[in-house]
Design a protein around this nucleic acid. Sequence first.
DNA 1: CAGTGGTCTAGACCACAGT
DNA 2: CTGTGGTCTAGACCACTGA
Lengths: 253, 253
Amino acid sequence: MVDRRSGVPAFRQVAADLREKITAGTYAAGEQLPSERDLVDTYGVSRPTVREAVNMLRTEGLVVAEHGRGVFVRPPASIQRVARSRLSREARERNRGAFLADAAARGFTPSTSVKIRFEEADARVAAHLAIDEGAEVTVRDRVMRADGLVVQLAVSRLPRTITRGTAIEDVNTGPGGAYARLEERGHQLGSFVEHVGARMPTPDEASLLQLADGVPVITVTRVAYAFDGLPVEMNDMVLAADRYELSYEWPAD
Amino acid sequence: MVDRRSGVPAFRQVAADLREKITAGTYAAGEQLPSERDLVDTYGVSRPTVREAVNMLRTEGLVVAEHGRGVFVRPPASIQRVARSRLSREARERNRGAFLADAAARGFTPSTSVKIRFEEADARVAAHLAIDEGAEVTVRDRVMRADGLVVQLAVSRLPRTITRGTAIEDVNTGPGGAYARLEERGHQLGSFVEHVGARMPTPDEASLLQLADGVPVITVTRVAYAFDGLPVEMNDMVLAADRYELSYEWPAD
DNA sequence: CAGTGGTCTAGACCACAGT
DNA sequence: CTGTGGTCTAGACCACTGA
């Protein structure tokens, strides 16, 4: 029952009570919560009020609702640790990119589909690639799947001046991938920088990545620099935050 | 007006229309949306339906509602880029930790409050620190502020076996911070690993970090390893995703 | 004070899952 | 078929903001 005189909104009291019972284990992972109509009786509030409480828990990622079945405590997703800062030349040459390497190591069937297009650099792209705004860039738009399930979106952009006439402008970049083509053209890779952030997904991303309510996405912008310090590629990646964790390693000195 | 026969729920149509007008710039950043009662007239739906649409945009982080004022398009927050993988011994000795270094470089007044406690390692802590579950750990629980505003939560854990008798068990760790004390005791630092993820905040975190609806947190677990490969410290950090971006850098070879 | 968002009710009907 | 969540209404009153 909710305390009407406490000043705390009823739906917040209901949400807090349910939240506490979930974290305390009264409702275990995967278990079904009482139906909304039961909660109406339990707490003495109307159904919209109960629904508002449950919605709160949904946006927190604590529970998932399944139409016609019930509301369930979200089981903690198994998180894949993805080691970054390991794109050694060796690894690059052995594999067709970090994603496929990860996938192969984990034993599921990877597949990617690629679309190529060309566009003019906006301010952000221009800044990362150290080119003029409006300059032409080659865009490789990839959807990566594991066993058919979309697990990552990646948009790679390179100045067109260094991709013209190479297989980078083809869907199939050939053995070693785009990085190998760059090195053949004399753009020896010197270093990588990754900028990592997080935000809520757009509706498009949510449906593509099949994200439940309350699951953010991790955004990674990787910039590859040639030995001379000039950026040659930027790659915007979007990952489901309930399935991925990124690991970075570096020496103390 | 919404299309009643399309099968798409009314509140989704309203949300989609508003979302599109926001991204298209019809409602610019910081600008006020029409009042809920105006939207009722515009779309021909009830107020709860309008509110559900607006709530959707709120959990997406697109708009913020201010009681008594109106609903506003969230202006893109200014994002701080925090360079990781730069905790060189030099930098550690010059400063009192990475956070204070960041703060000093940016010209705001930093402050932190620390609480010390001791606890038994749970499974996760034990795994990261390579100790037995139940072994005693020293916990340094920090709240970091910039100009009084909470910007980061950090919980540092070390095996008690290596902190006993050192200033690491005091609120004030002395010049150079906890890492300096570790090195004095012969635990020369060899490397760092950071595990980066994201999730929605708990209600506690949301109020502490003053997060608006629809803003996730970035979680960073940094593990410091001694030269002999043994972990000496783990640090769980929580950052507001709309204010921080982490940058990692590494050579291509 | 008027206008805004915040909360809440008591219903109604629909769509889906599982028996 | 029953029970579940999903959508929607027409109102009511409260709490906050700012003129």
